[in-house]
């Protein structure tokens, strides 16, 4: 009576190594413990009891970049902070992913000025952008789910998938081109 018997009844389970590795990566993806602005409050909310990120194996925020897999850039990045964010990213061990949480991290948001980096993708390569000012915990969890799906599509060679491009141009682009 034990797991051996149950497994014995299952017979042989075959799967691909790629699937198992990616499954393991998605289910214990530890974020780096840092918040830059108000979005960090929502990130904390996402980790607390009501929204409970630990359902996805993400309950531990690692205070050391060496032990973290995921960087959630929660908030605006000032020009003076940008080298520090890049350094933290460089210190994280591969494989690593970045979520730009909120409008400020994604594109500068309302801070279109000299002091704020206009989108953290100028500093670190971003995998998922989460819109909102600030995004609710549901939106952050949705972004993380999106990232998990992306990780599941990764190849065993470690090659990340290329950014999704829109094959059909948007209507506004067509109109703008027509009118010069």
């Amino acid at each position: 009576m034990g797991i051996e018997e149950k497994a014995g009844n299952l017979g042989v389970v075959t799967t691909s190594l790629e699937y198992v590795v990616n499954w393991g990566r998605t289910n214990a993806m530890w974020p780096l413990l840092f918040g830059l602005a108000c979005c960090a409050i929502e990130m904390m909310g996402a980790q607390s009891a009501n929204y409970d990120l630990s359902r996805f194996g993400m309950e531990i925020n690692r205070a050391s970049p060496r032990q973290a897999d995921l960087m959630i850039v929660a908030g605006r990045v000032s020009r003076k902070m940008a080298p520090v964010v890049r350094r933290l990213y460089d210190q994280m061990s591969d494989p690593k992913w970045v979520v730009a949480m909120g409008d400020c991290a994604a594109c500068g948001g309302v801070f279109n000025n000299y002091a704020i980096v206009q989108g953290v993708d100028e500093v670190v390569p971003v995998d998922v952008y989460v819109a909102g000012c600030p995004p609710r915990p549901e939106a952050l969890i949705d972004g993380i789910m999106m990232l998990h799906e992306k990780v599941m599509r990764e190849k065993i060679s470690g090659v990340k998938e290329r950014p999704i491009t829109i094959s059909q141009p948007l209507l506004q682009v067509e109109v703008a081109k027509k009118h010069g």
Partner: peptide, 24 residues
């Protein structure tokens, strides 16, 4: 001192802006 930093990207001009934006 200039107030704005970068041109805001909309759907009609994002191609030109993203072409010269220094992505990491």
């Amino acid at each position: 001192h200039p107030l704005g930093d970068e041109e805001v990207a909309f759907t009609f001009n994002q191609e030109q802006i993203y072409a010269r934006k220094p992505f990491a």
